[in-house]
């Protein structure tokens, strides 16, 4: 469906991957700090997954962006360096700098999670890890916000030109980031040396799953408000949003993949496992199969959200000439 659009799959993948990476790091660094300001806090193991998986999707996404540049396609391989010669108030300029700092910080942050990393004593590594956790959270949120601001900055794109779009992207980034960490952990669980480690595994998993249910709840609410207010207006915005409402060309894709597969089903399954502990303080235990399927569904929905939003914004425009 992306043929003939100015921004196609590379941009869609970028928005998804950068959001996911930023969300994964923001969420896992927050959880790490919550485990106490000691280098080996109680959630350090899950934070390690977040720190290791976050930089890669962000870097891959940024590379994809370069491949889609008109200058790159025309053979000017390094013209994109011009982005670093200026700072202006273009969301893309601000985003470029944010993204660059985020990638740099996230690589150093991942390094602080390597056991006995060379060139640094463990004490230095621990204190650097805590310091960077505080620093990287605002940068992660910044990267997640700017992807929405980038799209939202243009009155000529009524579907995107909404202040709530950036909020939607932030919440989706955090949710898909958590899903990515949980998925990575379920696929590569490592070995838990004792019962205490196994219990800690589920304790961290519980906090993430419970947070994710809340985030998806917010995401559904934001989506509802986005669609409702757009539908209640007249003119450009109403026409634009009609492509994802029933009868629109993207409606089935949106409601099946984004709302059902990406949000409702995973939220209900997570709720099923979270509620017994939340209400009755029973032990939280989630089968490994579910721990893989649910994050996979959330990630699919997160990608499809970007896919639908990026296409919908480009096939609609101001009404009349």
């Amino acid at each position: 469906m992306t043929e003939g659009l100015n921004w196609g799959l590379p941009v869609i993948w970028y928005l998804f991957l950068a959001g996911m990476g930023a969300g994964a790091l923001t969420a896992s660094a927050s959880l790490f700090l919550r485990g106490g300001s000691v280098a080996r806090g109680m959630h350090v193991e899950i934070a390690r997954y977040g720190a290791f998986i976050a930089p890669i999707p962000v870097m891959v996404g940024s590379l994809l962006l370069i491949f889609e540049l008109g200058s790159f396609e025309a053979g000017h391989w390094f013209r994109w360096i011009n982005l670093y010669l200026v700072i202006n108030l273009s969301p893309m300029s601000i985003g470029t700098w944010l993204l660059t700092f985020f990638i740099g910080l996230s690589v150093v942050y991942a390094y602080t999670f390597i056991h006995n990393a060379p060139g640094i004593t463990n004490e230095q590594r621990y204190s650097l890890r805590i310091f960077l956790s505080w620093v990287i959270i605002p940068f992660g949120i910044g990267v997640a916000v700017y992807t929405g601001v980038l799209l939202g900055a243009m009155p000529s794109r009524p579907f995107w030109n909404s202040p709530i779009l950036a909020m939607l992207f932030v919440v989706s980034s955090l949710s898909t980031g958590i899903a990515a960490v949980l998925l990575a952990r379920a696929l590569f669980p490592g070995k838990q040396s004792n019962d205490e480690a196994a219990e800690q595994y589920h304790q961290s998993g519980y906090i993430f799953a419970a947070s994710d249910v809340m985030l998806i709840g917010f995401e559904l609410l934001i989506l509802f408000l986005f669609l409702m207010f757009a539908h209640l207006t007249v003119g450009d915005v109403k026409q634009a949003v009609s492509v994802v409402l029933p009868g629109g060309s993207l409606a089935s894709m949106f409601f099946i993949w984004v709302v059902l597969v990406g949000l409702l089903v995973p939220a209900l399954i997570e709720l099923y496992y979270v509620v017994p502990k939340l209400l009755y303080h029973k032990a939280f235990a989630i089968p490994r199969g579910i721990e893989i399927i649910v994050p996979a569904a959330i990630l699919t929905g997160g990608f499809m959200l970007r896919y639908v939003v990026v296409i919908a914004g480009q096939i609609t425009g101001p009404v009349g000439i």
Binding site: N6, W7, E68, L69, G70, S71, F72, E73, A74, R79, W80, N82, L83, S90, M92, L150, A153, M154, S156, R157, G313, Q314
Partner: peptide, 11 residues
């Protein structure tokens, strides 16, 4: 100078 990011095409 232009890198061809297509942001202006959207705007």
């Amino acid at each position: 100078v232009c890198i061809g990011c297509k942001y202006c095409l959207q705007a």
